[in-house]
Simulated assay, not measured.
Amino acid sequence: MQLPQNAFKRAILEGRQQIGLWCSLPGSYAAEALAGAGYDWMLLDTEHSPGDPLTILAQLQAVAPYPVTPIVRPASNDAVLIKRLLDFGAQTLLIPYVQNAAEARAAVSAMRYPPEGIRGVSGVTRATAFGRVANYGKRAHEELCLLVQIETQEALDNLEEIAAVEGVDGVFIGPADLAASLGCIGEPANPKVVSAIEDGIRRIRACGKPAGILTPDTAFAKRCMEWGTTFTSVGVDATILARSAEALLKQFRG
């Protein structure tokens, strides 16, 4: 059995826009319902959701038959969490709260087997098709994709050093935490925040790395794409569910 190809990694490295959807609902049933919607990628979250590694496993299994790339966000830049998610079969990870090049290098190390990294070795995992993928240990890094999330002023200050770390495949701007870091919590449309995001995207692109972002604001998502984002998440499942339910009720109650 051959190592599965990472279509998302190839697409962003070739500069092809990838439209994504954020999935904060931890159930596999909801993930499967969304997997067939036609998005290029879906983010399975465990940082700001009730999800954990075991719920991620069920979600990965549920979305596997669909032509969408699952990206997993661990709760933190933790080598043990990263190891487990990779063993479960996740090929693309978004690591939150990366502040500097040292933290980016730590994420790269957690993604790779020795001698290049510290990922623990197990020959019978879902990632290896339970031992059926030929030369998985030697080739896994070819199809793994590491995205790092910058979401503070400190991270912006270190952006070029973070992007330059070998093994970082893309840089994602987290607008909510960035707004808080800039003293504008809950104000993602504040001109100060918007300016920082625009500058950040342009700097990421100048480093030769794909840039990404999450925003449910359709107009702003399009602006970010014009500025240069290559992987752009345009909605959150829980938000879509809550707001759509409210809008439906409003038609009947005024």
Rank of each mutant, 00 (worst) to 15 (best):
A189D: 15
C145L: 13
E142L: 14
E161P: 01
A155S: 15
E187D: 13
N190V: 04
E187F: 01
D169C: 08
L178M: 12
G186F: 11
V194D: 08
T152M: 05
A163L: 04
S195V: 00
C184M: 14
I150P: 00
A196K: 09
P191W: 13
V165R: 02
L182A: 05
E166Q: 13
A179M: 09
I162W: 07
L182M: 14
E143Y: 01
S195H: 10
G183P: 05
E161H: 06
A155W: 01
L144T: 04
A164W: 04
L147V: 15
E142N: 13
E161C: 02
E161L: 02
L156D: 08
P175Q: 12
L156G: 11
Q149G: 06
N158L: 08
G167R: 04
K192A: 10
I197K: 05
F172Q: 07
V168A: 06
E154L: 11
A180D: 04
G174F: 03
P175R: 04
L156C: 06
A163Q: 05
P191V: 10
E160Q: 12
E166N: 12
A196Y: 06
C184I: 01
I150C: 08
L156K: 03
G186C: 10
S195R: 14
E161T: 05
D169T: 12
K192T: 14
V168H: 07
A180I: 06
H141K: 11
A196N: 07
L178E: 09
A189Y: 03
A189F: 05
C145V: 02
C184A: 13
K192L: 13
Q153W: 02
E160T: 11
E166F: 02
